[in-house]
């Protein structure tokens, strides 16, 4: 069975998380931030594990670019 990417709110205390995410980047250069984000993505991707979900996440992230 392949799962589906959950896009309804799943984060506990979302405003707290958002603040923590921004705070993690405080004082970092752009390069350092890019590397931090890369580590974060890899850790989260491994936690999710399921390839179908990860592929949907990549597609959803690409599709959301409105610039």
């Amino acid at each position: 069975m392949t799962g589906e990417l959950r896009t309804r709110l799943g984060i506990d205390a979302p405003d707290d998380f958002y603040e923590a995410l921004i705070e993690a980047h405080a004082g970092l250069s752009e390069d350092e931030s890019m590397r931090l984000n890369a580590r974060l993505i890899l850790l989260l991707a491994n936690h999710v594990g399921e390839r179908a979900i990860l592929d949907q996440a990549i597609a959803a992230a690409k599709a959301a670019d409105r610039s």
């Binding site: 390069d31 890019m34 590397r35 984000n37 890369a38 580590r39 993505i41 890899l42 850790l43 491994n46």
Partner: peptide, 24 residues
């Protein structure tokens, strides 16, 4: 590319402490 380098470095940095990254 720069971002490809960032992910490569992220894998190496994580590999010290995290088993999954060693496999990458």
């Amino acid at each position: 590319s720069k971002v490809s380098g960032a992910f490569r470095d992220a894998v190496l940095d994580l590999a010290r402490d995290h088993e999954f990254a060693r496999r990458l």
